Amino acid sequence: MAEAPPRRLGLGPPPGDAPRAELVALTAVQSEQGEAGGGGSPRRLGLLGSPLPPGAPLPGPGSGSGSACGQRSSAAHKRYRRLQNWVYNVLERPRGWAFVYHVFIFLLVFSCLVLSVLSTIQEHQELANECLLILEFVMIVVFGLEYIVRVWSAGCCCRYRGWQGRFRFARKPFCVIDFIVFVASVAVIAAGTQGNIFATSALRSMRFLQILRMVRMDRRGGTWKLLGSVVYAHSKELITAWYIGFLVLIFASFLVYLAEKDANSDFSSYADSLWWGTITLTTIGYGDKTPHTWLGRVLAAGFALLGISFFALPAGILGSGFALKVQEQHRQKHFEKRRMPAANLIQAAWRLYSTDMSRAYLTATWYYYDSILPSFRELALLFEHVQRARNGGLRPLEVRRAPVPDGAPSRYPPVATCHRPGSTSFCPGESSRMGIKDRIRMGSSQRRTGPSKQHLAPPTMPTSPSSEQVGEATSPTKVQKSWSFNDRTRFRASLRLKPRTSAEDAPSEEVA
């Protein structure tokens, strides 16, 4: 009796068929016929556990003709996506030579605008209408194809895939403007070719909807975003200037109206006075309405000098805001240009540092100066060695804690006790272990408590650290204090090793 083939788990290929790579489910599931010992083939499952149809090819690079078809379809799909992405970037994010197409579109729109203006002049109306009709045909074809291509290429973005995504893309403001202008152009052409009475009025009214094509030149909205950011950044200043200017306008108009309503027919109503105030304070000055009385002229002159300053403030605020924003954008561009080279330089330096163990090129690091100058660790070890030599091999803490019996001779020589300023008595072995921070803190506390006492003391002649007598400086308080830590004499004296002298005989010792 033939044995059933062993159940295979995992992703390994079956024996005897090495080139074939078959994806098997996580659990080997066989058909009921196979479990019962029949000759049925096992049921194939996909990666998600769903059964595959009987005629479906197995996924994998070596699955025969199905694999070749899959490779061809995958390559075609990649080319399709690449083309779609390229078209989308050309239309929505132009760079380099892609601006040539947008310059061509701008020339078409500008020519249409010029011809629309010439069509309103009686001398050039006939020729402009003929040229404009031909140009409209060209623009309908160009913009119609462009609109379709834009909607198709938007599928390269995830949020615009599918018919719902394309509809979302078509609802964008600039796409809506394109659609309105396209419909208006078709209506103008249809009305112009019919030759009816309505054609002339339709051409004159709907052609100027094509002015909206100038708005579509900035599809990404960079200028509007820049203007919005400047207004938002200086909103408080703008609101303040406009508010005060509006108050000056209504008060000036009302007072001039009261002064001129009886003697001047131009100011017969408050609305006429508001019109005069707006034209005057905005420095336009049509001259259609002028005050005639001396009181009205004085009020107009005073409020004009006051109001023009507030009406001119928004222009200066926006101008300075634009300058600052442009400078910030230039700085951001320079930062973006330098970020990648800086990151590459840091990575290269780290690779060199991690692979080169000698690091002989590091001549400006802490390790280099640590090898030249005595390190703080060596100074600490030197302090501890000196203290243990004086205390008979014991550390200062051990000397303080060691009990001394009554009447027993002390094995240590008597030492002079010292007192730290602002604290109780402490171990004499710690007097010379006072660090730089303690010395600086002690000097600052003395300056806070009594700076007036220092200038009363007789001035001391500054001497070099080499000429100081070591026996005289029994305490860190003898170090000359200065008002600034930048004094080199104080810094050098604080680094010197001060020996400890006994109370009975204080021989001067120098520590090399």
Rank of each mutant, 00 (worst) to 15 (best):
M1L: 04
A4G: 13
R8H: 12
L11P: 09
P13H: 03
P14T: 03
P14Q: 07
P15A: 02
G16R: 02
G16E: 02
A21P: 11
L23I: 03
L23R: 10
V24M: 04
V24G: 06
L26H: 14
T27P: 08
G34R: 03
E35D: 08
A36T: 10
G37A: 09
G39S: 02
G39A: 06
P42S: 08
P42R: 07
R43P: 04
L45I: 13
G46A: 06
L48R: 14
L48V: 10
G49C: 10
P54A: 08
A56V: 11
L58F: 06
G66V: 01
S67A: 04
A68D: 08
A68G: 02
R72C: 09
S73A: 04
S74T: 04
A76S: 13
R79S: 14
Y80D: 03
Y80H: 08
Y80C: 14
R82H: 11
N85S: 10
W86R: 10
V87G: 06
N89T: 13
L91M: 14
R95C: 10
W97S: 01
W97R: 03
F106L: 00
L107V: 13
L108M: 03
L113M: 02
L113R: 00
L115V: 08
S116C: 00
L118Q: 11
S119T: 11
T120P: 13
H124N: 03
L127H: 04
A128S: 03
N129T: 05
E130Q: 04
C131F: 06
L133F: 00
I134L: 04
L135W: 11
L135V: 02
F137S: 05
V138A: 11
I140L: 14
V142L: 08
F143V: 05
V149I: 08
V151F: 10
C156R: 04
R159L: 13
G162A: 04
R166C: 05
R166G: 06
F174S: 15
F174I: 14
I177S: 00
D178Y: 00
D178A: 00
F179L: 03
V186A: 11
I189N: 00
A191E: 00
G192C: 15
T193P: 00
S201P: 14
L203M: 11
R204L: 00
R204C: 00
L209P: 00
Q210P: 07
Q210L: 15
I211N: 00
L212M: 03
R213H: 00
R216L: 04
R216C: 00
M217L: 11
G222S: 04
I239M: 09
T240S: 06
W242G: 14
G245W: 00
F246V: 03
F251Y: 00
L255M: 09
Y257H: 11
D266G: 11
S268Y: 01
G277A: 06
K289M: 10
W294S: 11
L295V: 13
A300G: 10
F303S: 03
I308M: 04
F310I: 04
F310L: 02
Q329E: 07
K333E: 00
F335L: 09
R339K: 10
M340K: 14
P341A: 15
P341L: 15
P341S: 15
A343S: 03
A343V: 06
N344T: 11
L345R: 14
I346L: 14
Q347R: 12
